[in-house]
Computed example of a mutant assay.
Amino acid sequence: MDSLIWIGAANSLAGVVGLGWCIVYVMKLRRQTLDDSEMRARMQKAVIMNFAALGVSTLGLMMVVVGIFLG
C-alpha cells in the first residue's frame, strides 16, 4: 500500500502544478489587450484545465486516503 500512497501523492502534486499553471496563464491573459470573444475562448481553455487539475488532485488525494486505510 505504500506504493499507492506515493502514486497518489504524485498525482496530487501534478494537480497542484496544474492549478499553478492555470493561475499563471490567467494572470498573463489579463495583462493582454484582447477583444471579448478572444478572451472568452482563451479563458474557456483555462477553465477546462482548471477542472482537469482539480480532478487529478482529488483522485490523488483519494488514492492516498485509500492507501492509508488499507495499509
Results as ranks from 00 to 15, higher is better:
70 L>E: 12
8 G>A: 05
58 T>R: 08
8 G>N: 04
8 G>V: 00
42 R>C: 04
43 M>S: 08
14 A>S: 10
7 I>Y: 11
51 F>P: 00
37 S>H: 08
12 S>V: 02
63 M>H: 03
26 V>W: 02
33 T>F: 06
42 R>N: 13
62 M>A: 15
55 G>H: 01
35 D>K: 05
24 V>T: 07
29 L>S: 03
64 V>N: 03
45 K>V: 09
5 I>N: 02
60 G>Y: 03
38 E>P: 01
5 I>W: 02
27 M>F: 11
14 A>V: 04
66 V>F: 15
28 K>P: 01
33 T>Q: 15
8 G>W: 03
4 L>H: 07
46 A>K: 01
64 V>W: 02
56 V>G: 04
46 A>M: 06
31 R>H: 10
70 L>A: 12
45 K>F: 09
59 L>D: 02
58 T>Y: 15
3 S>R: 10
10 A>P: 01
44 Q>W: 09
27 M>L: 14
64 V>L: 09
4 L>N: 07
60 G>V: 01
68 I>Q: 10
63 M>W: 11
53 A>C: 08
24 V>I: 11
36 D>W: 05
71 G>S: 10
47 V>R: 12
17 V>G: 04
1 M>E: 15
18 G>D: 03
10 A>N: 05
16 V>Q: 13
59 L>Q: 10
2 D>Y: 05
37 S>Q: 09
2 D>L: 11
7 I>L: 13
46 A>N: 04
4 L>P: 00
37 S>F: 04
13 L>F: 13
4 L>G: 00
45 K>D: 14
37 S>T: 09
3 S>P: 06
50 N>I: 02
25 Y>P: 00
48 I>G: 06
54 L>C: 09
60 G>S: 06
30 R>A: 12
61 L>M: 14
62 M>C: 12
14 A>W: 03
12 S>L: 05
34 L>R: 06
2 D>V: 04
37 S>V: 04
52 A>R: 02
35 D>A: 05
8 G>L: 03
29 L>W: 02
52 A>Q: 06
68 I>L: 14
6 W>S: 14
11 N>I: 00
52 A>I: 07
24 V>W: 07
45 K>C: 04
15 G>W: 01
71 G>W: 04
5 I>V: 14
42 R>E: 13
39 M>K: 11
37 S>L: 07
2 D>Q: 08
56 V>F: 14
9 A>E: 07
63 M>G: 08
20 G>I: 02
21 W>Y: 14
23 I>W: 12
37 S>P: 01
39 M>C: 08
49 M>V: 01
69 F>D: 09
62 M>N: 06
35 D>I: 01
21 W>N: 05
40 R>W: 05
45 K>L: 13
29 L>R: 00
53 A>H: 04
1 M>I: 01
12 S>G: 14
17 V>L: 15
61 L>I: 09
40 R>A: 14
26 V>I: 11
71 G>N: 13
27 M>Y: 06
24 V>G: 06
54 L>Q: 08
65 V>S: 12
17 V>N: 08
47 V>I: 09
39 M>A: 09
45 K>A: 12
